[in-house]
Design a protein around this nucleic acid. Structure first.
Lengths: 368, 368
DNA sequence: TAGAAAATTTAGCACGTTCCAATTTTGGCG
DNA sequence: CGCCAAAATTGGAACGTGCTAAATTTTCTA
């Protein structure tokens, strides 16, 4: 069904010769309409649009006025057809209901502000099928490149064909088979630092809570956790590692398991802040004072972490800067035409707040 | 700078006659390439793409195979040029760092799942200038319609010209001069209900916290608050209305003001949950037990509200359904071609949790 | 003021698609 | 076997823009 585009907005004061033709025009004004109105050729209008230095100041002004009067809107579809860049950057995000990925998206957006690109977000909701659709759709619309936070269970094989010849920057998760750049937080080192902090505070029964075995990021964080234990010569204990969904309820469900252990945990490093907040909540409801009787550390340092009670100690990943880095990398690759994969590791910082119950006194204490 | 598109992906097994030509081809495969490979004309390929019933089953299959082999990607730019719908729905959101608007965006996304449209998010960060840019960019890319959560301070005049002839559905905020549909929560009634609830619990010093006078939504919620007071014959007191930024810090800052009043407040209805959470946090830190000594009610019922301590009582707006409604309305208008403005009011529900300290005992108590 | 040089403007094709009208193929039936 | 209708396929003209090469105008130089 064809809808009537247009409805030429109220134009006052047209020159008499132009008005006849414009009254007849259907659809949006084109470069040719502008040209006619300004009394130049369409080539000149095209030059004005491109900001070319070739066109005389007076002409440029006349053309600009004509564009304003006609409510001219540039037709990018036509331009890409001719080979121009679309100026679209696709961002394919696996879970927008997770605040961390929202931060990531905002970071990407911010990085695009100055540049010539407009970001274009889609949420795959961890659904590989939807991810395929979304990426295809972005290509169809001529996206110049992709920032991809892959959905769990994406198959690199299918993606490979879909993104052939287009630069892709992965964030957070690495898809093994995909030849593409990647921007990652220092997951392992961050988890190591956090765990070491708990150990330094005297904890020895430290749990790792959240995520599922299939998740690459979790593996990295878990590896950091194990490394810290190893450094402190504390034996690793499988029962202290709890798999959950990575949402609030996941964390809430883990509380009981931690407390019912034969020898209960006294501290937990969580896969991310959302899980940690759920855990804190459930522990508090169970009558345990988090920060005094039990230490919890999260991961990501989302905005919300500052505003829980007690405020959550967290390994700060800074989603915004991660997103910005990814977008910048992508834009740089687009500008240079060199799509050689790069890996960018973003440092993590342990932000100590009340939930791990470590006052400055303990921080300098002996490591057990 | 022109970048090399393409890099034709590894194609195995081509028929000998086709291989010569394809080896030479630059750029992405076109409908003509597919046609050649399948041994049909480009018109037939176009019909296959359109799912036309005209084309014979055997032919359709041959064409589909050719498309798969060549990694053909539909070029929407070219199609819109010829008059086809772009299939793009623009979503212009004022503040993606507010979880409520994220919910809204997710709702829009979900509504688009089945349909023929792909949503296209942009965050204006409450910046009217950026909003202009973003809307312009969306038009340039051929967006068929817009869901618009207007930035504070948007000027309807400028927008009007920009969206002329394109259906727009506003959400949450109404721009006075703009002739466009709008989807709104029942702000006034929701605020009235919440306030009445506090009054029924015995409170008489009830504050309204958050937002700035220029905000239309706030005016509506404030009106509901005043209405409830009036119904209970409690005089309105200007010092109980506190303006703040609509973020966590805004709520935090309000706590001191509320407690330092000549006659301190005992309850607060907040402009939104984010403000409410900030307020709860600051009150708790000041040693006040929220839910027992002080009642707080938020607005929006974001996911986070369930997970604070105490859990936050809130007027549930359901951002997702609001977003879905908006997207559905827009798609319906696009399908029918009838852009007559409509107003959709979404009901709100008071979700009672611990932060307003009302056990069932108090709920039935006398109203003052 | 002619002629050259510089500055500015323009004609026209190409891009990948859709749609219309026209053509070819198929199948049924006398 | 021929004819006709229905089914399937096709050629070619747009659509709005960018770019190249060429045309035109203006400015400068002698």
């Amino acid at each position: 069904m064809l809808v009537d585009w247009n409805v030429p907005s109220e134009l006052e004061s047209m020159s008499e010769d132009a008005s006849r033709e414009e009254a007849v025009r259907e659809g949006r004004a084109t470069i040719v309409d502008v040209a006619r109105r300004a009394g130049v050729s369409k080539s000149t209008v095209s030059l004005v649009l491109g900001g070319s230095a070739l066109v005389a100041e007076a002409t440029r002004e006349r053309v600009s006025d004509a564009m304003a009067e006609l409510g001219y809107i540039y037709h990018r579809g036509a331009a890409t057809l001719r080979g121009a860049r679309s100026g679209l950057l696709g961002m394919v995000i696996n879970d927008l209901s997770n605040p961390f990925y929202v931060e990531l998206a905002i970071g990407i957006e911010q990085a695009c502000q100055g540049g010539a690109y407009v970001p274009f977000v889609a949420n795959t909701a961890e659904n590989p099928v939807r991810q395929q659709q979304v990426i295809r759709s972005m290509r169809e619309h001529g996206a110049a490149g992709l920032v991809l936070a892959p959905a769990i269970g994406s198959s690199p094989g299918e993606l490979k064909a879909l993104v052939a010849g287009m630069p892709v920057v992965q964030v957070m998760r690495r898809l093994p088979g995909l030849k593409a750049s990647i921007v990652l937080p220092e997951n392992k080192e961050g988890a190591r630092k956090a765990t070491a902090h708990l150990i330094a505070a005297g904890h020895r029964r430290i749990a790792f809570v959240g995520g599922l075995t299939s998740m690459v990021v979790r593996d990295e964080r878990l590896a950091g956790y194990r490394l810290a234990l190893q450094d402190a010569e504390i034996p690793f204990e499988a029962s202290l590692v709890i798999e959950t969904m990575t949402n609030y309820s996941g964390g809430e469900g883990a509380a009981a398991q931690l407390l019912n252990l034969h020898e209960p945990a006294t501290a937990a490093l969580c896969y991310n802040d959302v899980v940690a907040i759920g855990l804190v909540r459930a522990l508090t409801e169970a009558g345990i004072s988090v920060g005094r009787d039990f230490a919890v550390i999260g991961f990501d340092d989302i905005e919300e972490a500052k505003h829980t009670l007690p405020a959550l100690t967290s390994v700060a990943v800074n989603g915004r800067s991660l997103g910005s880095r990814a977008a910048q990398l992508l834009m740089r690759q687009l500008a240079s035409g060199d799509f050689e994969p790069e890996t960018v590791l973003c440092p993590t910082t342990l932000v100590v707040r009340a939930s791990c119950g470590v006052s400055t006194i303990n921080q300098t204490g002996a490591p057990s």
